[in-house]
Amino acid sequence: MYPSRFEYDAPKTLEEAIAILDRSGGEAKVLAGGQSLVPMLKLRFASPERIVDINGIPGLNHVRVDADGTLRIGALVRHEDMENSALLEKSYPTLAGAASLVADPIVRTRGTFVGSVCHADPQGDWAATMIALGGRIVAQGPNGRREIDMRSFVLGPFVTALAFNEIAVEAVIPGAKGTARGGYLKLERRVGDFATASVAVYLDMSGATVNRAGCALAGVGGRTIDANDAISVLNGKQLTDENIAAAAEAVADAADPRTDHRGSADYKRHIVKTFVTRILTGIARTEQKAA
């Protein structure tokens, strides 16, 4: 199918873009990478009256760390920028682990991190990492900026807490108290397919002790599964085999998979447990080597 007709604007400033959204009264959509929006337009799942293309707005393609350790990712940072970032490779293993598993390499040249989070697809990789990392979305509207915690940002499949006249300008991820560890694993039948199961794990560690553990799952429920409470059994503890097994069990219990052509519910739960164990065991081994 072909997209239905729409008006198109390519504003040069955020203020201008927000003014257009405001005037459109909810009938406009923001276009960043377009790798979800354009397919939605073609399927006519979305038929906005107006498209506001933010690709020409400067100052939105940064990946940087503030003095206090807060990571900031601008609205035009592409998946491949995340994949190629030396900073993420070194200090943000959860994000670095997911970066090369998002969609396929060609989609990754266009699609954006923030756009993917705003698309709020229950299968989305980045939303899972954001929940595990305790991230927030910075929304800018006519009255300025506000920060929305990731746990209250996604209201349901493809629905977010963004108001019609707000743009998600940045993702913010708090710094670790100690050292950030983590990983992301995804089982897919082929590159670009929806995940059978994905697991994002984040550990804020001081020495061998976990200060805070974070976890979220994609592909195993009607929404991104927030497994932070489940994996919190690791908080204040060390990564012993026993503690890892308990955490993997708790996270697998938090999954809510359905049997479909990608596998049975039991199989998917088993994958979740295996992935959590694999990520945590890998971190434990690295810690042992460092000690």
Binding site: P39, N55, V107
Partner: peptide, 29 residues
């Protein structure tokens, strides 16, 4: 495929590969 899967429509956009069925022509201005 016309659904961002197959990559047959791949072109280079400012030197990077993109699926041209998943970009609006106006964006290439």
């Amino acid at each position: 495929c016309d659904t961002t899967n197959c990559g047959a429509c791949t072109v280079l956009f400012d030197g990077r590969p993109i699926k041209s069925c998943t970009m609006l022509a106006v964006q290439a201005d």
